[in-house]
């Protein structure tokens, strides 16, 4: 097991209480691991030199200029500040569920903060929005690194409640963020799937790159409950008293149908979809994001 994997394990990360620090830890751990070089080569398109300022990464210093002209400048690339990333994090009541170290909300908030840190670290602008049936928090688009604290506070402040209305949220997001950018949606998508897919399609139609992180708990995916159990819905008044093993097969079939529908719908709309378990390492979302980011640069 690489060190990064060890340090990014949810058990370890949970000990870090502050979301901001947690995000830094994850990203730095991730970057120090084996996945670093594929995403941070200097093959991206050079734009100009800028005078070195304190705090700039020494790796961005153009040492040839320093050797010839004896001044410190840093290289700047064309797309570095053009990417606008919108983080949409589901904080509905269903996100409160979790049997592991993190519940779905905690996990989602953590990976949202992690992504934010990564985005800000790359000098991209990031905005965020938490939602259930309504928009709960909204953080404007910024690219400063200190913006991470604002974002982290927004993620951490919310306590999951109410139902999810993803279609409505996506409609509003499309209205709020009319300029093209990258939409990262972190949710369990336990709502009307058809409507959700319609919302995703709407975002795509506005030119957004959409990245979906479908966060599910192990207990939801594996359904390893046993013994007489009363299941209470987290968002409605519904409940069911049953022996879970008797219904497991049917449950898993229904779940798979749901996942398939969501995955297929995303593929149809050219939305990147990733199913993430709450037991997965917390940097699981980063490769997907970076791939997407890289693909965007290469594609230009």
């Amino acid at each position: 097991m690489p060190d990064s994997a060890k340090y990014l394990h949810p058990e370890a990360i949970r000990r870090i209480s502050r979301l901001e620090l947690r995000a830094r830890h994850i990203v730095e751990g991730f970057l120090s691991g084996t996945h670093r070089s594929p995403y941070f080569g200097r093959s991206v398109e050079f734009l100009q030199h800028r005078q070195y300022a304190a705090g700039d990464d020494l790796r961005d210093v153009d040492w040839r200029v320093w050797a010839r002209q004896d001044r410190l400048v840093v290289k700047q690339y064309e797309e570095d500040t053009n990417l606008r990333v919108h983080l949409l994090v589901d904080v509905s009541a269903s996100m409160q569920f979790g049997n592991g170290v993190f519940n779905k909300y905690e996990y989602s908030a953590t990976i949202a903060a992690t992504l934010a840190y990564m985005i800000l670290r790359q000098h991209d602008a990031v905005a965020a929005m938490t939602f259930d049936a309504q928009i709960r928090q909204r953080v404007p688009l910024r690219s400063q690194r200190k913006h991470l604290r604002t974002l982290a506070d927004a993620f951490a402040m919310d306590h999951p409640q109410n139902k999810t209305d993803l279609f409505g949220i996506l409609q509003r997001a499309a209205a709020i963020f009319p300029r093209r950018g990258m939409m990262i949606i972190i949710s369990d998508f336990l709502c009307d799937t058809e409507a959700t897919l319609r919302g995703l399609k709407l975002l795509r139609s506005q030119g957004h790159d959409v990245l979906v992180f479908h966060v599910m708990d192990d207990a939801e995916l594996d359904f390893d409950f046993s013994g007489p159990t009363r299941f209470d819905s987290m968002e409605t008044d519904q409940f069911l008293r049953c022996n879970p093993q008797a219904l497991r097969e049917g449950y898993l079939a229904e779940l798979q149908k749901f996942l398939d529908q969501l995955r297929r719908g995303c593929a149809d709309s050219r939305v990147d979809y990733a199913l993430i378990r709450t037991s997965d390492a917390l940097d699981a979302a980063l490769p997907l994001y970076l791939n997407k980011r890289l693909g965007k640069r290469v594609g230009r």
Binding site: F97, L190, T229, D232, L240
Partner: peptide
Amino acid sequence: YRRIRFAAIDFL
């Protein structure tokens, strides 16, 4: 029985 608040109850 025990009580569990469960998110994916629709599938159940």
